[in-house]
Design a binder for these strands. Sequence first.
DNA 1: TCTTTTTATTAAACTAGTTTATTTTTTTCG
DNA 2: CGAAAAAAATAAACTAGTTTAATAAAAAGA
Lengths: 188, 188
Amino acid sequence: MESILTKYFERIYGRNLTIDEEASILNSFKLETFKKKQLVFSNGDANTKHYFVTKGLLRLYIIDPLGKEFNVLFAKEGQMIGDLATPLPTSFFLETIEESSVFSIEDDQLRDLTSDFSKIVATIKRSYIFLQKRYISILSKTAEENYEDLITEYPDLVKRLPQYHISSYLGVTSVFLSQIMAKRARKR
Amino acid sequence: MESILTKYFERIYGRNLTIDEEASILNSFKLETFKKKQLVFSNGDANTKHYFVTKGLLRLYIIDPLGKEFNVLFAKEGQMIGDLATPLPTSFFLETIEESSVFSIEDDQLRDLTSDFSKIVATIKRSYIFLQKRYISILSKTAEENYEDLITEYPDLVKRLPQYHISSYLGVTSVFLSQIMAKRARKR
DNA sequence: TCTTTTTATTAAACTAGTTTATTTTTTTCG
DNA sequence: CGAAAAAAATAAACTAGTTTAATAAAAAGA
């Protein structure tokens, strides 16, 4: 029963799974489905779960004191998303962008699944490195450059995202992104 | 022999160290000293070491294609610094701001020291959460707000840093930070 | 399909932050 | 200490990105 979920674990483990492992994985996760634009969790909620996306697209975002939203992370099929700060209450919102199906799992159960801690370390380190790269981009590049990077690195994602979610991810207004795009279009 | 280094490990372990553990820690680290403004490592160097600061102040930074520097992280006495992306070659520069002493350790030796992997996970998670907080600040706040936050959270650090290192950390020019400070001074 | 709602575009006036250049202040070091 | 170098302040012209508002285009849904 080669599911997208078990494949994900095989990639993390770096080997094939035993029948028992497969069963235990599928047992630990709970399937949940959400319609488009549905909230999975909110700022202030208890934060003990992680979400593995099997279908659809989600976004993790914050709302600043002025009520403005900033997207921090997207996740599509085959990717994990959640607030790594478990078990501290989250300061994020998680919401579906498309109609989605996710497998949710409690933080401690996820830990139990991965007896080889070095794999967990490697996984978190990868998230850290990804975030660090984004941090540096936001710090040192213009919105136009960041948009170009996004297109070349994640063209499929860009196609699926409404434009105002992209601008929020880049940290600029939708008006300004629209200007960037108009300028780009003129150039070619 | 209660050193600042062994105290650091006691905090991570969450308990006192045995004599053997203490000896093994002190054996794994190598003391290095640097003058002010000395480079510890550069972009492209092999990246296998971590640095524990016992004296002084260091900065981890990048240089963008235009030659501009952006400070990413500072570390003073009692703090660890390095590029978490070990063993991948680093894209950072590490440099002393003040005359400094550090204990360096190889990545795999550090791993060996912490047989309890969950402590390593917790440590990396903490770094991740710290970075995420900064990321969101840079994305959603003005330079003025970020400067205020820095002063209230790390007043001691701000006092020790030359102003142009602070501006580089905030992602603005030194000229603009100077304007922010002038405006602040006028207000009170 | 047609109406309503959501998303994207455009324009114009504005603000945050940059650049370049000059001057002043502070630090370094022989 | 005094000279030289490094860091900070100030000014002025500039650019990147915001805000508000109006219009156009696309998507949703009865």
